[in-house]
């Protein structure tokens, strides 16, 4: 019968024996010179002896462990544990991969949805829909990742950081839409100006002075701005931009507060509390002063 050298028990036993021999020789080599020849103590003195002692003790510990592991009983109990290990590892890995693939699948699905959403809007011509599309994609798809519940000791800080990023993105989106809206009258005024010049040219009444061209354009532009400003769409976008800016300001202050708190300076929150107290105190003093005069 051929001995199965590839069996894990045999392999480990051989490795353990060789390890024991190794640590044994190491221990001897380390401590050898001290016992073989009484060499004078190195200049390090007591300090170096302690280091040598500590190393020797570590080597002896490894030697003991190796010797113990060679004992058949110890090896059997170890192998019982090792045999169970691959099963545990496989199960753990399997569960992990399954979760990972599920997560990845969700991401792909979301990415697919992004395509579905944007298809409904026209990106070839930059118009209002582009801003709506971006806002929708951000709010429906990306935003939720910033709102994932934070855990642990630093959860509140992480939450504030996430909120700051979120509010910043929303503010940028709203601002872009607002600025675009402000640009629209400019675009329209050029178009109307072109039409008017065509008409004047047909009637051979083109202005002589460049000033007249400018005045004509600025009047058209003013008219378009007024029409825009009176529209409910503008009021809505203005309100949305202001709200986004205010939310961003609050989130920014909350986040900065965390950083300032680490410095030896009072925070805005501290100061506001103090100002409020001071305000009421002053008010009270002034009232008392006034009533005492009367």
């Amino acid at each position: 019968m051929v001995e199965d050298n590839s069996a894990p028990e045999t392999l480990l036993e051989a490795w353990m024996k060789s390890a024991t021999r190794f640590w044994d020789s190491m221990a001897k080599a380390w401590t050898g010179p001290l016992s073989a020849s009484e060499t004078p103590k190195p200049p390090g003195g007591a300090h170096e002896s302690r280091a040598r002692e500590s190393m020797g003790s570590t080597l002896r510990m490894w030697q003991t462990i190796s010797s113990t592991m060679i004992e058949p009983g110890a090896m059997d109990s170890l192998f019982q544990g090792i045999n169970a290990l691959p099963e545990v590892l496989t199960k753990t890995a399997q569960t992990g991969w399954e979760k990972f693939f599920a997560f990845q699948r969700q991401w792909f699905e979301r990415a697919g949805k992004i395509g579905e959403r944007t298809e409904a809007y026209k990106f070839d011509n930059l118009d209002q829909d582009a801003f709506r599309a971006w806002a929708e994609i951000y709010e429906e798809e990306f935003r939720k990742f910033l709102n994932v519940p934070q855990l642990g000791l630093t959860r509140a800080y992480q939450e504030r950081m996430g909120r700051f990023t979120d509010r910043f993105n929303l503010f940028q989106g709203a601002m872009a839409q607002f600025i675009y809206l402000l640009y629209l009258p400019m675009e329209k005024s050029f178009k109307v100006m072109q039409e008017r010049l065509e008409a004047l040219s047909r009637e051979k009444q083109l202005p002589e002075n460049s000033q007249d061209y400018y005045r004509m354009w600025v009047k058209i532009l003013e008219g378009h701005f007024m029409t825009l400003f009176k529209s409910s769409e503008y009021t809505q976008v203005l309100g949305k931009t202001l709200s986004a800016m205010e939310d961003f300001m609050v989130a920014k202050n909350e986040m900065l507060q965390d950083f300032v708190q680490m410095l030896p300076v009072p925070t805005q929150k501290d100061m506001d509390g103090l100002y409020k107290e001071l305000y009421f105190l002053k008010r009270r003093v002034k009232q008392l002063e006034k009533s005492s005069r009367q």
């Binding site: 202001l242 709200s243 800016m245 205010e246 300001m249 609050v250």
Partner: peptide, 13 residues
């Protein structure tokens, strides 16, 4: 008429 003044004052002081 559409300004949310509470939000504004709370944000800016």
């Amino acid at each position: 008429k559409d300004v949310d003044v509470d939000r504004m004052v709370d944000a800016f002081g």
